[in-house]
């Protein structure tokens, strides 16, 4: 967690003086009445990347646009849309970049296989160090 550390220079650079003076959108920082829906919305927000600050999810961002994206997600969840459908809608517009959850497209197969491959390779290497037990 060099979080913040030393830098954070990117974050405050723009938004400080160039913020909208309008109040945040209705659902940007207001929860949905139904806790189950709110939980779904929050879970999705934590996996959508903020377009303005780029290093954060929209759930952790102070940027206006992140607020509008939170509002969009809550509105659509309230209308009964599934989180994955909303994710797809965003990916259609911004590409895979906008989702912190890597897709299951072939380009990501090595990524998803990595944990298994790493453990398998480790077992193969470690096996030599063991004697067979009788």
């Amino acid at each position: 967690m060099r979080a913040l550390v030393l830098a954070l220079l990117l974050v405050p650079a723009a938004p400080a003086l160039a913020d909208s003076r309008m109040a945040a959108a209705a659902y940007a920082d207001t929860q949905l009445a139904d806790p189950a829906q709110e939980a779904k919305a929050t879970a999705l927000m934590h996996t959508i990347r903020c377009l303005v600050c780029q290093g954060q999810s929209i759930a952790d961002s102070d940027a206006d646009m992140a607020g509008d994206m939170r509002a969009l997600i809550r509105r659509r969840i309230a209308a009964g849309e599934e989180p994955e459908a909303i994710r797809r809608w965003l990916i259609e517009r911004y590409g895979d970049w906008v989702s912190y959850a890597p897709s299951t497209k072939p380009v990501n197969w090595p990524l998803w296989a990595a944990p298994l491959l790493l453990v398998a390779a480790g077992v193969l290497i470690a096996r030599r160090r063991f004697r067979r037990r009788r």
Binding site: S57, D96, Y100, P102, V107, L111, A114, L118
Partner: peptide, 28 residues
């Protein structure tokens, strides 16, 4: 360690190979 390293550098690797921008975050 390998998972963290792969996950951290994967977006860079993919962009180097085919120019596609993607994100690897908490869900992974």
């Amino acid at each position: 360690l390998g998972v963290v390293l792969v996950g951290t550098l994967y977006p860079l690797g993919v962009e180097a190979v085919n120019g596609e921008k993607l994100s690897v975050g908490p869900p992974y």
